[in-house]
Amino acid sequence: MFSPKRIVNSKKAGEKVLSIWWFFVLAFVGVSVVAAVSMFYSADVDVKEIEAGILADRVADCIVQNGYLSSSFIGGNFKLKECGLNEEVIQNSQNFYIGISAYDFSSCNEKMECKGKIGKLNFSAGMSTMPENCRIKEAEEKKGGKAEYFPRCSEKSFVALNRRDKTIPEKLILKIVAGSNQRGGILA
């Protein structure tokens, strides 16, 4: 009859090593090695937040030149192509979002929380649900969740001056929200 005590107490070395316990140890080691290697080599390199930051910077560099808002943005005929961005990729891939809004500088506090939104100076392109999804992701991560498949956003604020249109304030706060949910894929 099988008895672990008997195996441990056995004087024969061969009986000890060929016990069922040794196979449990081997199975445990095997499963651990397979799990660790699989986890390491299936890891995802997440660059969505960096990508969103780059997108926001590219747009900011383009619509604020030497501290002044570009005429196309004030005129309401701003296009992403002006910034050297591929409109087709941003609009149709459903992986990107760019949103620009402007506020009266005097309506903003030190934390860049603003109230006086200027309706005329607005622009958005790409996946419009992305800012909301980013907020959900942040809330989820605060709770300790992972939200791996949610987009990452980057929000940047700049002070910009307006000299061209007298109907809008001269000093503005420009808020640019960019998002990315690109995961990439394997081509056969």
Binding site: R58, G84, N86, V89, Q182, G184
Partner: peptide
């Protein structure tokens, strides 16, 4: 607007860029 990197014969990993250059 896609970069594909292939290091094995199984396939390549591709990622899109948004720059219009």
């Amino acid at each position: 607007s896609r970069v594909a990197v292939k290091l094995s014969k199984r396939g390549a990993f591709s990622y899109r860029f948004f720059s219009d250059a």
